[in-house]
């Protein structure tokens, strides 16, 4: 009866396989298993850019890669200035409602570069991510909600800038898209700071991986961080 035993053994193993597959899919369905793929991944960025915005926008991305390469190892002040200039030059200020059809949309650098336009927080996010990528410690960079007075008028507007704190209690340097050059905070009398934040503490235990939780996308900041992860920035 060698045949019979062979058949039954193979049936058992098939059954075991099916069972294992069932368990795996069940586990995946329950979210017990996740497949994180997060690291800085230029290839993925290129693919995404080509896919979302066409081959034409790859130039900007390549320019950005070149910037990262060129600035690696330079001192912080150079990095700040070059990054600030890069984005102020490559992204046109346009209201979110025009660009994205939404009142307030936080775009990732890829999206901002892809569209070639964005508003204040898109500049700040792009600069923040680029500087972090260049090795500037995260805790020195903070996104700051400010109230901006436009020109000499009394008209004020909600605005966002990126602050660089050389030390935690130092006066920050402000990277802004309204004023093209970087200046110390005390010289920016047109801005009133309200509150600041960065990605420190959002992510568990210093890892760059956010916890897989569905509610994270409800927060704009965390939403954009998640999208950056999936696009290959982080």
């Amino acid at each position: 009866m060698p045949n019979g035993s062979l058949v039954s053994r193979s049936m058992v193993s098939r059954r075991a396989l099916l069972g294992a597959f069932g368990l795996l899919s069940l586990g995946a369905g329950l979210g017990l298993l996740s497949f994180p793929a997060s690291a800085f991944d230029p290839e993925r960025l290129r693919q995404r850019m080509a896919m979302l915005y066409g081959q034409g926008r790859l130039d900007v991305l390549e320019a950005w890669f070149a910037l990262l390469e060129r600035l690696a190892g330079h001192d912080v002040q150079t990095q700040l200035r070059e990054v600030n200039d890069f984005f102020n030059r490559h992204i046109r200020w346009v209201d979110d409602i025009v660009t994205w059809g939404e009142e307030d949309f936080w775009a990732t650098p890829l999206e901002a570069m892809g569209k070639g336009q964005g508003d204040c927080e898109d500049y700040s996010i792009a600069k923040y991510v680029t500087l972090k990528q260049l090795g500037v410690p995260g805790e020195r960079l903070r996104m700051i909600y400010v109230r901006a007075r436009l020109g000499r008028s009394q008209v004020t507007q909600a605005h966002m800038v990126l602050g660089y704190y050389a030390t935690p209690d130092a006066e920050p340097q402000i990277l802004d898209n309204i004023a093209p050059s970087i200046s110390p905070a005390s010289q920016r009398t047109d801005l009133d700071p309200l509150f600041s934040f960065n990605s420190e503490g959002l992510w568990a235990g210093g890892s760059s991986q956010s916890r897989a939780d569905p509610l994270a996308r409800l927060s704009r900041w965390r939403g954009v961080l998640e999208r950056m992860q999936s696009q290959g920035f982080l």
């Binding site: 700051i144 209690d169 130092a170 920050p172 905070a185 700071p193 600041s196």
Partner: peptide, 8 residues
């Protein structure tokens, strides 16, 4: 972070 003006 609690802000005090521009500073933390």
């Amino acid at each position: 972070t609690v802000q005090d003006g521009w500073q933390q």
